[in-house]
Simulated assay, not measured.
Amino acid sequence: MNTLFDPIKIGDITLANRIVMAPLTRNRAIEGNKPGPLTVEYYRQRASAGLIVAEASPISPTAQGYLDTPGIWSAEQVEAWKAVTGAVHAEGGKIVLQIWHVGRISHTSLLPAGEVPVSSTDKAADASTFTRDGFIPVSKPRALRDDEIPALIDDYRRAARNAIGAGFDGVEIHAANTYLIEQFLRDSVNERSGPYGGSVENRARLLLEVTNAVIAEIGAGRTGIRLSPMTTFTAPRDSNPQATYGYVVDQLAPLGLAYLHMIEGETGGTREPEGAPAFDYAALRSRFPGAWMVNNGYTKELGKQAVSDRLADLVAYGRPFISNPDLVRRLRDGAPLNELRADKLYGGGAEGYTDYPALAA
């Protein structure tokens, strides 16, 4: 019987345990959208996780949607990330980078001059984003033209190549939380015609083309992908999420991915929102032969049961890792957890970032 604390090999990556630090946007990048010294220390402190999925990182200047998120498109960013990966590896940890395009969840003030957000649609989301002026409504997007999509896919390809160059053990394609890829996937957002709209096969085309491009660049064994069938973070659910995401998983199954990262329920920790339709995650898990990572509101007990019952191979923890750099030890020893300072989540300096205490040696 497997436990949270047993090692596992996922694709080409061998992990010391099955506890994953989920990707967490913290808005602390320095000039040039680079990770700085505080970010190096932040990840070093948490390197006892079997795997760290580093925070979502825009693949290009026009992919950004929140203030001070570290990118992966420039040579300077690659060099800065090397300090992070080196620190994690020196502590014996493994780390992958989540590569990200926010689509319409952005604001013109965050993008190069004259640019507007892009999406599958030209309709604005009912959402806000974090800017120099605090949280403000997102800007109206324009719909990507079909002939622009090859260049977008090349941005993902370059980001994956840059991540490996920066020393990451792999990448996680962000296809969740209603960002760009999911804006194409869901029929609640995608109203296109042509090769990227209409049928589920067409709506899933971008996700699959990006995945195959990343695999061709860095190998399937270093590629993971994140999905969120039931979240309504900035958009309604698909009209038939079981069928849509079932199709996606069936297409991903033969590719040899390192893992599939499934957000259960609503993003942010609500596992079974009141009134939400049922979703059969186990049906998807049974159709995917690779490592299956679960996420959203997992406690030690729920995570232990998921692994022992073979409902999951890996369990990702988000906010508990923010306030507990030694979360693996605390879960193993049954130690109490530090209280999260929610007012220090986004932006700022060391406070609420690198100053949470670890247990005494």
Rank of each mutant, 00 (worst) to 15 (best):
N202W: 08
S128N: 11
A253N: 09
G246Q: 12
G93A: 14
A282V: 02
I149T: 03
P195S: 07
G349C: 03
G290M: 02
I218G: 15
R142H: 06
Y346Q: 02
G170P: 14
L260F: 08
R44D: 07
T244M: 12
N212K: 15
A29Q: 01
G349D: 10
L206S: 04
R145K: 15
Q251R: 15
P325H: 03
L206A: 05
L4G: 03
R285E: 09
N33F: 06
E351K: 15
Q98G: 14
A63D: 01
E264Y: 02
A213D: 15
T354Q: 09
A243G: 00
R310S: 02
G352R: 06
V40A: 02
H107V: 06
I322S: 10
I164A: 03
R192I: 08
Q305W: 03
A160V: 12
V328P: 06
K94R: 15
A316M: 04
I19M: 14
S323Q: 15
P117Q: 10
Y356W: 08
H101M: 08
I173V: 15
S119N: 05
A306W: 00
D326M: 09
T178C: 15
T85A: 04
P357A: 02
W100N: 13
D122H: 09
A291G: 14
R271D: 03
A204L: 14
A176E: 13
D238E: 02
R329Q: 10
V53K: 10
G224P: 14
A47N: 08
A176M: 13
T69M: 12
G348A: 10
E182T: 07
N324W: 12
